[in-house]
Design a protein around this nucleic acid. Sequence first.
DNA 1: CGAATAAACGCAACACAGTTGCATTCCATG
DNA 2: CATGGAATGCAACTGTGTTGCGTTTATTCG
Lengths: 151, 151
Amino acid sequence: MPAKSVSTPPFSAALRAVGLKATVARGRVLEVLHAALQPASHGEIEARLAAAASPLDRVTLYRVLDSLVTAGLALKAVDARGVFRFSAAQTGVAHQRHAHFRCEDCGGVFCLDAPPPAAPSLPDGFRLHGAELDLHGTCARCGDAGGGHPA
Amino acid sequence: MPAKSVSTPPFSAALRAVGLKATVARGRVLEVLHAALQPASHGEIEARLAAAASPLDRVTLYRVLDSLVTAGLALKAVDARGVFRFSAAQTGVAHQRHAHFRCEDCGGVFCLDAPPPAAPSLPDGFRLHGAELDLHGTCARCGDAGGGHPA
DNA sequence: CGAATAAACGCAACACAGTTGCATTCCATG
DNA sequence: CATGGAATGCAACTGTGTTGCGTTTATTCG
C-alpha cells in the first residue's frame, strides 16, 4: 500500500469532486458529520472535534460548514430551539416526505421511515415544496433516565 | 356605555379566561398579534409597539410572549433563519394534530384544518405528545408578488 | 373602598449563536 | 520548488434570547 496515509485527509476525493480544496479541517468535519447519528449543532461538532483531536476554531468551523452546505455535501436545518443543525448529505436519499420525531426534552431529532402523509388541498396560490410529519414527545433515552440534553 | 374604557385593556376578558392577569402589556401585544397578517418576530412586535405608543421593554416582551404561548393565546414557531415568530392563536382550534403550511419565503405559518395524520408506530420507549403535518412551500402572496421578508 | 399579596414589569447584566475584518498559513497549480 | 489565491486562526462585534433583582401593578379579601 502506498505511504501517503499521513498527507491525505479523509474525504479528499469527495471534496475535490465538488470543487473544494481538500483541507484537513473539511475532512475532519465531514468525518464527524458522517459518524453522527443525528443532525449535529455547531457546538456539538466543535466539541467532538476537540475531543477527537485538536480543537478547530469556531469561526473556521462555521465557514467549513457553510462551504460544505453550499457544495451540497452537507445539509443545514433549523431545530425547534432555533439552532442550526448540520448533517451529511446522503447521496441518493430523497429527504422529502418522511416523518421526524422530535424529543421535547433533549431536542434530538429522529428520522422515521413512515408512509408519506397525504397532502391536503391547499388554498389557491399556495405551492407545495415538501411535507413532513412532525411527531414530538419524549425519546426513549430521556424517558428512561431523568436524562438531559446531549450538549 | 360604561365609562371604564380607559381602565380596561383590550383582550382583558380573553386573558382572564385563560388564567392570566389582564395587564396593559399583554393587551397591547395581543392587539399587535391580531393585527399582524403574518407571524411576527420579537423585533417586529417590539418595533410596532414602539411605533404605536410607548415602547415596551425587550425582556417584558419576551416574557409576555412566553406567557401567551403557554396559555395558548399565541403560537411560537421558528422560521428558516432560526428566529422565533409569534402569531395569535385562533380561538376554538384544538391545537393538536392539525396541519401547518409554512412559507419558506416570508416565514409565515398558516393553519389548515386537515385530517389528523395517522401516527406511525414508534420505537420502544418513545412517548408521543402531539403530531403535526408540516407542509412547506410558498404562500399565495409570496408566489404572486416577488415579495420578500416582512422585515 | 382600601390594604395585602403575588404576579408582572423594567433595568442591568449575562449567555449563546452567528458574523466580519485582517494577518498568517496552507493547498493546488505550474 | 516557487507562487497565488483560498483557507485558517484570532479578535472583536452583532443579534437573539435569558437570568436576577428591585419596583410597580392587578387581583383578592377585609
